[in-house]
Nucleic acid binder design. Structure first.
Lengths: 353, 353
DNA sequence: CGACCGGAGTACAACGTTGTAGTATCGAGT
DNA sequence: ACTCGATACTACAACGTTGTACTCCGGTCG
């Protein structure tokens, strides 16, 4: 169907290689030959066959991005930024989702379905530290997240402990002493939840505030519904609190919603801070103070590290890098620190529907 | 680096084709030969080279999904469902974003970067009816959205007019007569905005309510910030209204937020309904009544149509199909019709972080 | 004036896979 | 004893591209 170099060569009356040379802008082609070939290319609407090129060159020009779920805002926004950065490097992004299942994650790592890609950016939620050696694959891989440390691959992660500590300290700075945590995971020594709870405890300890286990609400997942449910339990338990630290924004928005249904005023009765700084937090009622964990920087760094690995020639590979990105707290109304006007702070929002 | 059929064949002492036959489970291989080859495959960790397969077969097993922006919830959720459906067909999804720019959309259609895919699901926002002929590409293409009609490609779209009419009728049914619309586009005869405004006007006309242009708020984009800004203008204009129909949920959530800041009670003073039924609408305060335009069904249908096209052999292709999916109104608190409990109506939410 | 050089273009092989045609072997049927 | 047919396997070509090695030609230099 589609035209090939062979067709163009035939029409232009030159060899197939000369056409290839024109297409790739090689020197040593006379201007008149070049024009003749160009005319044939235009006439046939020739487009190089990407698959054949890949086979020849060993590069596909695509990278894979493996995520739990795109409908979670954090990951959607991350994917958006990965795609944007990849495009700067002339790469296209193939997305696979795992639903946070350990089995699916492991399967994807060895899946021939992804073999079209030159490398993978991998964000696991189901796998844990014990699975570290499964990451030693024979293609370029960049790991995201806080499930696995110290494995022999490039790893981009956020300062979970420090950021959580800073968030908690902000609440303490507001005079709050009874700070609830929403989203802890039972019996898990690994992952974002454990690290953020650690930061929370560090802040309490530093401020001389005793840690009260009754203030910790556990969830399995980090969706809005889970935040709502565990806030309901917390309220029903009758424990007193004057602030909430939600371990991600989705959870926190769900929790904040229940708080308000139950008649608590935010931030007057309860100050609330989240984690992730997803876009909707900016437009919640009240707008949600949140930790921006450096998402944009994570996306950029991950693509850059991957590109570097892909570019590595046969020689001995560079040592695996562990990159920590900087975080930032974005103060808004839910801690009584943001401006009330929202329409004016509309920021740059690139697209409509 | 990676093992090839050739390596396996050498190790097993058979021909390369026999290995291929084992890999592809062809008959006419003796069990003992099969085992011998299988051992060699395992020993070398052989994985078929997807690129070479593609070249040989003319299929890559990947489809492209072209969207304005993944950080818009509607598209993120759509992408999620496209990926899930694609997987059922053994396909992997490559995502390209256009930022809703007409130039980028047109560029993507002829981009060799996407040539790795077997076909495209294309959701334009910048292109218009005049660009219809640009869709006549020489690869399988399924069009989404309401920007272009009647072009010779498969097209999946929603019942914009009917759904908007039903939404408006719901508000009328609640006794509201002064219904504002947020998100209209100036001077645009095409696209979701125009169609939904049409449905709104149809409903008014059918109910004998005069159409008041002062109740129509215009925006360029459909982000939360735009909804917030135009609601602010609407309020400042002093016009009286007792209901709001937002042309998508993001807009509507922004508008609802401003309404509440301004002291209006929702739904008592102003009933609000949105369009898209994105996940966060379920957790807004109050939860937002919305039109589910059939997103899941759009994703499934689009993939299925594309798969059918890809499977078409050389013969004359099937006529282009125009598919309209069904919508549904999901009543929630913002129209005083939903239940107040939210934690219990948590629905099925597949993943955490 | 022959050797040499660079430009312009070509032929061929190779990337890793699979379809097609072919060979060799064996048992069964006439 | 011979064909026939099935089984088990192999050799080769081809998918469309590009790197390497080659030829051919006109011009320049010693």
């Amino acid at each position: 169907m589609a035209a090939t170099l062979h067709d163009v060569a035939h029409l232009a009356g030159v060899s197939i290689k000369t056409v290839s040379n024109v297409v790739n802008d090689y020197p040593h082609v006379r201007p008149e030959t070049r024009h003749k070939v160009q005319r044939a290319i235009d006439e046939l609407g020739y487009q190089p066959n990407a698959t054949a090129r890949s086979l020849r060159s060993g590069r596909s020009g695509a990278i894979g991005l493996v995520l739990p779920e795109l409908s979670l805002s954090y990951f959607a926004e991350l994917a958006d930024e990965v795609i944007a950065e990849a495009e700067k490097h002339g790469l296209v992004v193939l997305i696979e989702k795992t639903g946070a299942s350990r089995e699916r994650e492991i399967a994807v790592l060895s899946s021939p379905r992804m073999r079209l890609t030159d490398g993978l950016i991998f964000s696991p939620l189901g796998m844990g530290q014990d699975d570290a050696e499964l990451l030693a694959v024979d293609y370029p891989l960049v790991l995201l997240g806080e499930r696995i440390f110290g494995s022999p691959v490039d790893h981009v992660t956020m300062r979970n402990v420090e950021a959580a500590r800073a968030a908690t300290e902000m609440l303490i700075g507001l005079g709050r002493r009874r700070i609830a945590v929403v989203g802890a995971h039972v019996d898990e020594g690994v992952g974002s939840a454990a690290l953020r709870v650690q930061g929370y405890q560090d802040a309490l300890a530093a401020a001389g505030i005793p840690f009260d286990p009754a203030l910790v609400a556990y969830t399995t997942l980090w969706h809005r519904a889970n935040g709502a449910a565990s806030m309901r339990e917390l309220i029903d338990s009758g424990v007193h609190f004057d602030a909430v630290f939600g371990l991600n924004d989705a959870l926190t928005l769900g929790a904040m919603r229940v708080l308000q249904e139950a008649g608590f005023r935010v931030p007057d009765d309860v100050a609330v801070i989240g984690f992730d700084d997803i876009e909707e937090s900016r437009y919640a009622v009240p707008s949600l103070t949140s930790v921006d964990p450096g998402r944009a920087s994570i996306a950029r760094t991950a693509v850059q590290l991957l590109v570097r690995r892909i570019g590595e020639q046969g020689g001995r590979p560079a040592d695996p890098q562990e990159v920590l990105v900087d975080f930032e707290i974005v103060p808004r109304e839910s801690t009584g620190t943001g401006s009330l006007a929202v329409a004016s702070s509309s920021a740059a929002t690139p697209a409509a529907r």
